[in-house]
Computed example of a mutant assay.
Amino acid sequence: MTEAIITAKTKKKTTWKEISNCIGLSEVFTTSACLGQNTLSKSEAEKLGTFLDLSSEVVNTLQVFPTKGPGQEISTDPLIYRFFEICFVYGPTLKEVIQDKMGDGIMSAIDFTMNVDKVEDPKGDRVVVTMNGKFLPYKKW
């Protein structure tokens, strides 16, 4: 499925942003679904299929509930690895600051949005990743 989508995206010379606009979802969520990490509704998958001229098999596969996450391995892709590195270095700090502000709990990855933006800078363009997750306090019983 993902290979067919990437091939069609390349052939059409389009962007993830243009694809996401076509189906009415965010760029990050749309890309995630196309990479097999999220699912699309029938109408969303059909819009994507029409936009990229995908087979009915690919359109149907986009609607299957995925198994999320690549497993227990740490990616060696330099860009992906940097996100692991950020968590290794700043994870304990993020946990402390979040819990200091919010209490004992976690940030949801289910009730969650993420945006990726480019900010031009004379010293080199910047990547801005904004994650927005609902705070879930631990329940006492």
Rank of each mutant, 00 (worst) to 15 (best):
A45E: 09
S20A: 12
F84A: 08
T10M: 00
A4P: 01
V97F: 05
L48M: 12
K101P: 01
F65P: 04
N60G: 14
A109K: 07
L35G: 01
G49N: 07
F83M: 07
V89F: 09
I86W: 05
V97C: 09
K12M: 09
M114V: 12
D125S: 08
I74S: 15
T31N: 12
F51K: 03
E46P: 06
D104P: 02
W141V: 06
E44Y: 14
Q99F: 09
G105T: 05
M131W: 10
G71Q: 07
T14L: 02
K47A: 14
C87G: 07
G133H: 01
F88W: 09
T93P: 03
V89I: 12
G105I: 06
G91I: 07
Y81R: 13
I86P: 00
V119E: 11
F88Y: 09
N60T: 13
F29N: 07
T10E: 12
G36R: 09
I86R: 00
L35W: 14
V119D: 02
K13L: 06
T67G: 04
Q72D: 11
P137C: 10
I19P: 01
M102E: 13
K101E: 11
I5R: 01
E44C: 13
P137E: 12
N115F: 06
T31P: 00
D104F: 15
